[in-house]
């Protein structure tokens, strides 16, 4: 990474319902944020499926997300699509400090 990541405060933890995605538009990029029992994850709100579509409305299980339109199973930690499908969604680093959620943007 050449540039230092900038951390953007996107809200309090409570602003995110457990396992229900929420879209934050950061510098024109739609980021879907998910608070799970384990952590808070940020992933670009665009399915890696060839037909695209949003991810924010998917069903969350652990650190996996089920694409709402195509039912692809995506790992929220690295954006990797699980077999038998393939692909990767872009993910963003997330930091939670004193209940505030920060997302790293380039």
């Amino acid at each position: 990474m050449n540039r230092e990541a900038a951390w953007v405060a996107v809200g309090k933890q409570d602003d995110f319902m457990p396992r229900v995605g929420r879209v934050i538009l950061i510098n024109g990029v739609e980021v879907a944020v998910f608070r799970t029992t384990e952590a808070v994850y940020a992933i670009e709100n665009r399915s890696p499926h060839p037909k695209g579509g949003p991810l924010s409305e998917g069903i969350v299980s652990g650190h996996y997300l089920y694409d709402p339109l195509h039912d692809w199973k995506i790992d929220l930690r690295d954006g990797c699509v699980q077999a038998p499908d393939t692909g990767q969604a872009r993910t963003f680093a997330v930091r939670v400090e004193e209940d505030s959620v920060y997302i790293a943007v380039m």
Partner: peptide, 12 residues
């Protein structure tokens, strides 16, 4: 309403 439908926008 905010948590499920609200759109949050950040611009730098």
């Amino acid at each position: 309403r905010d948590k499920m439908f609200g759109k949050v926008v950040f611009q730098q």
